[in-house]
Amino acid sequence: MASRSRFPWHILVFILPGFIIYTLFSAWPLLDTMFLSLFKQASSGERVFSGLANYQELLSDPHLSEGFWNALWNNFKFFLVHVLVQNPIGLLLAALLSLKGLHGAKTYRTLIFIPTLLSVVVIGFTWQLILSPLWGITPNFLKSIGLGTWFQPWLGQEHTALLTLALISVWQFVGVPMMLIYASLIAIPDELIDAARVDGASAMRIFWQIKLPLIVPTLGLVTILTFIGNFNAFDLIYAVKGVLAGPNFSTDILGSYFYRTFFGAQSSLGSPTMGATVATVMFLIILMGVMIYFYVVQRRIHRYQL
């Protein structure tokens, strides 16, 4: 009889692969980035420990902080457009798709989801072609339906470029909230809807008073995923506007700002240590957003057993 309990080696064996992969590709790079942000690089290439000096510089140095605050504010606007446009449209599409007896629902679903699968580079290039005042189809198209005067070079104006890019991103990714919301809408049992119909509720009332309250957890999830995606965004800006996020940095968001800080752009030199600082700040902003969501918002949201 073995009365002494052996060390549970098998548990270690099961945990180890995941632990190694997570450490190697996620935890360690993150910690190393944070660590790097605590150094300054001398012109000789030597790295000197400098505490939180990089952070102070980033947030207060006129040269650096102006760009940072601009990028942060733009990023909030970018996120706001997604929350106010992408998610409501996703909800609307999902609600329409989940209607009983809608012909071609599967086709619509696929078509709306396809842009999500395309490369951002392709999307960016395509929309540049569509919107170009010189060889785009939009000016002629608007003229042909009598709205020629409405046309503006939306991607080229400081006050419209960011909104236009945000809407392009909405166009590409609207399929994601649509799918998530659609999945939770069709999970609502038919009998519940039948009961509401027997109670005399109209389709509108059923949507607002029965379906919507039941999918609130999904809407919350969609919002936080949008937040994470938007504050990590970079590729669309880079593909359409390049590293300078023009005109006059009006489309600069944290991702593109980080890129310039880290790798440098045109005349300015890149700084790995300052780049690491920006990256860390981005991580902290997202972490804060997610924590607010989990500790404040999600605790108030009730999930109902359907």
Binding site: P189, E191, D194, A195, A196, V198, I210, H302
Partner: peptide
């Protein structure tokens, strides 16, 4: 008419 369903179909919220 009023109806009682197999799964009760009470509004969970």
């Amino acid at each position: 008419i009023a109806m009682v369903f197999q799964s009760y179909a009470l509004y969970p919220h």
